[in-house]
Amino acid sequence: MDTRAEVRDFLRTRRAKITPEQAGIASYGQRRVPGLRRDEVARLAGVSVDYYVRLEKGNLNTASDSVLTAIANALHLDDAERAHLFALAQASRAGSPRCRRLQSPAIRPSVQHFLDTITGSAVLVRNGRLDILATNPLGRALWAPAIDTVVGRPNMARFAFLDPHGPDFYGDWAAVGRDAVALLRT
């Protein structure tokens, strides 16, 4: 059985098990289907009806843990059912296309040539993840401990936090660490 169908069946059967009275909702007249309506579950969980309908159709891959907990509480799920709901969400996320980590762009030869012509200053080009993309000769000499000790693309944050020479390389390592964390968070 595919995950979407299993999610649909699970949420529908659990919704059918709960009576409006058990959920604390006043019930008026005869109901066509047993249990709670979708809008009632959505209201109890604190999500929009459209969002809950999408979840019940099997789209759990974007549901946060807090939303899943709210739905589990609204449906009065026991521990085993709650664990199953979270397992279904995990399986949905595993089956969805993941955001691939983008490769760092290559520096064009013209940019590298321009960097090489700068002889009075050390120049370092980096991306938002603090990967070192290019340097001029003076920059390469200055940041040699960070560049030469790494296989693959050097990273300033990785050097600062994981390399044993990182704290010695920077004069104010604590400030560099705070800055690196702030840059990575943005």
Results as ranks from 00 to 15, higher is better:
R32C: 08
V49Q: 10
I25H: 10
V181H: 11
P20Y: 11
V49D: 10
V111Y: 01
R101L: 15
I18D: 07
F169L: 00
F114E: 04
A70M: 05
D79V: 03
Q112A: 12
A182Y: 05
D116F: 06
F10S: 01
R38T: 09
S96V: 08
A94T: 11
P167G: 09
A157S: 08
A146N: 13
A87I: 11
T19F: 06
I132T: 07
V181E: 11
L184C: 02
A5S: 09
P109Q: 11
R93Y: 11
A5E: 12
S104M: 12
T19E: 09
R100M: 15
A89F: 04
I118K: 12
Y170P: 04
V125Y: 05
T69E: 11
P145S: 13
D179I: 03
P97L: 15
N73D: 14
D131N: 07
T13I: 04
R185E: 12
T186M: 09
R4W: 01
F10H: 01
L102D: 12
L183N: 04
F86K: 01
T19P: 05
R98K: 15
I107V: 15
L102S: 12
L115S: 04
H113P: 00
L124G: 05
R37S: 05
P20C: 03
G166Y: 01
S110G: 06
L142A: 08
R153I: 03
A146D: 10
Y52K: 08
E21A: 13
D131A: 01
H76F: 14
D163V: 02
N127P: 05
V49E: 13
Q30D: 09
T69M: 07
D78R: 03
L75S: 07
T62N: 13
Q22P: 05
L115C: 07
I118N: 13
A146K: 11
A87P: 06
T135I: 11
V111L: 13
G139E: 07
A26S: 15
L77N: 04
A80Y: 10
Y170M: 05
Y170Q: 03
T3H: 05
A70P: 10
